[in-house]
Structure formats: C-alpha cells, structure tokens
Design a protein around this nucleic acid. Structure first.
Lengths: 164, 164
DNA sequence: GTTGAAAAGCGACCACC
DNA sequence: GGTGGTCGCTTTTCAAC
C-alpha cells in the first residue's frame, strides 16, 4: 500500500481512509465493530473516520444491488445514441428523458462517435425494441441508435486498486 | 403501484418486496425501523422480508459509492474495444485482465460492433492514454480501440421503476 | 487524532395470532 | 404471513490522553 499522497485532493485521505473505503466498497453491510477489528482501530475511531468520509462527500451513498434476472429482467443492453442536432436545451431534455425511462440503469453523456450510451435491463428482446422505439428514437433530435447486447458485466478493480 | 404479478420470476415478489427493494436501492443506510415505519409494517416483518430477499439472492450485496473527483480521479471514459480474433480462451483472458486493471470501474462484454466496453475513472488525459496503451492495446488479440470521454453519468430510473 | 467506558438505540429471536 | 415483547449486541457519545 502506498502511504504518501501525491495529488492535492487525495492528500487529505491517509492510508486508513483508503483501507476503510476499500472495505466498504466491497461490502457495506460490514459492522463498524468488524471493520475496526480488521483495521486494528478502536471502534470509536473507526466510526469517526467513516462519518467524516460521509460528511465530506467522499462516500456519496450506500445502495443495495439487485439481481436483474431474479426480478424478471435477465437481458441487458447498451444502446448507443447519436444526435442530429446539439442545442443545449435539446440535449439536456433528452438526457432527462433517458434517465427517467423505466429499466434504464445508467445513462452516459459522452464525447466521441456517440452522444449517449444507455444501459438497460429488460425481460426480453421485444422489451428492448420497445425502449428503443418508444423511448429513444421517438425524440426528433435522435438521428440513429445502435444496440449492443450485454453478454456479461463485471465489476472492475475500481478506483481504490493499488497501482501496478 | 401494480399489485398483480405477471411473469413467473416476479411472481414470488409481492408489492411489499418491491417497495423494500425500491427504498434500499435508493438508500441502503436506512435502518430497519425507519423502513418498517415508511412501509407501515411491523419491524420484525420488515426485517424478515429483507433477510429473505438477501437469502434468495434478489439483493446481491450492499456497497458504498465513492466520489471519483474527491479521490483524485475526476475524469471518466468509455473505451470501446474490438478484437481481431475470438477464441474463447483469448476472450476470457482479456476479460479477466481488463477487470483486474486499476481504475477500471466496469467491463461490459457485448455483442455488436464492439467486443468490450471498458468504463474507467482517471486523474487526467495522460492516465487515460496509459490505460489504453499499457493495459488494453498491449494484448495482441485487440485490433482497435476507440475512447469516449464521459461528460456526465446519471443513474437511470432503474429496474424497479413503475411502468409508464 | 485516538482511546476506553457508559448510555441509548437497534436488530434477533420467541411464542402467539 | 404478521404481531408485540424481551434480550443481547452495536453504535454513539463523551471526557481524557
């Protein structure tokens, strides 16, 4: 584990903070007691650190992750969206509409070949078509879409991985 | 809220289960007591439901989300990866390597124009180039990459949204 | 910033409906 | 499947280092 901090934002995070973030990023159900034991801290110290990380906004929130298949949404897709016009109002309105669409998990507003990448979870191929036709290409601003089926989605090593 | 369940997998999830999932998907820090009050359930009933959802794998896990900018990784990108050959061993090995790369948040294995979409968080443009050159295009199986900068990433309405 | 010890709150379990 | 009560543990708080 690297101890010294290099850049200005990370300077306020020491090795203990990073260890806490690593643990809670893997499993946030862990009790404060267990976390303190693992890091060889007093329970009160550990609780204090965690509260501070939340207060500073470094820990944004805590969420459960739901199994899509168990919910009847076994299929995932990425819909690449290209626009025909790019007025700020039009782009923002579409962004809002995409994010508000049921079964949409994440919306990436990107620079590059595409304008948006829409990650969705659906029950079957027909539901996927429904989203594309009834929620995306209905917007006149959308010039073209291209849908990619997700075979598998894995978590990466993440922001807190040791450098290699 | 729709009460009746239509498809077979969701049949085992009633309106109360869905309400629990909706709440914990937004904020998993909520205490069992608060959750029970919100849903007008007895605390023991509520706890029983939540434990059952976990045991059945419908709730996969609980995680904190960390602010990338606060950690010194303010830039996000999507790297689209196309392969030159598609042997199962080669594809799997690359999948493993991508998921194990520091600063990689998610890896999508997809069908379509591309083979993988790699979502990364980095400190600056040079770090992005480093990932592409030193962790992705180094693999001989990779034919081409195309990088898209992420302007903004929003959560969608999600799997539990009411149908519209 | 860190610690240990008391007080307050919470969740696990039980018999019962 | 849902209810209310008791017990044991965890978290919070606080004075002190």
């Amino acid at each position: 584990m690297r101890i010294e901090q290099t850049d200005e934002t990370a300077r306020q995070l020491d090795a203990v903070d990073l260890a806490i973030l690593r643990a809670l990023t893997r499993n946030a159900e862990m009790s404060n007691k267990a976390l303190a034991q693992q890091l060889r801290l007093a329970e009160s110290t550990c609780a204090h650190r965690v509260r501070s990380l939340r207060a500073r906004g470094i820990i944004r929130d805590t969420r459960v992750r739901v199994d899509g298949a168990a919910l009847g949404l076994p299929l995932q897709g990425i819909i690449r969206v290209r626009l025909g016009s790019h007025t700020p109002e039009g782009v923002h309105a579409l962004f809002d509409a995409l994010a508000a669409t049921p079964k949409v998990l994440q919306v990436f507003h990107v620079a590059g070949v595409d304008d948006f990448l829409v990650h969705v979870a659906v029950e079957d191929a027909e539901a996927l078509r429904d989203i594309v036709l009834r929620h995306i290409t209905v917007h006149p601003i959308v010039r073209a879409t291209e849908t990619q089926l997700v075979f598998e989605l894995r978590d990466g090593a993440g922001m807190l991985a040791e450098q290699d």
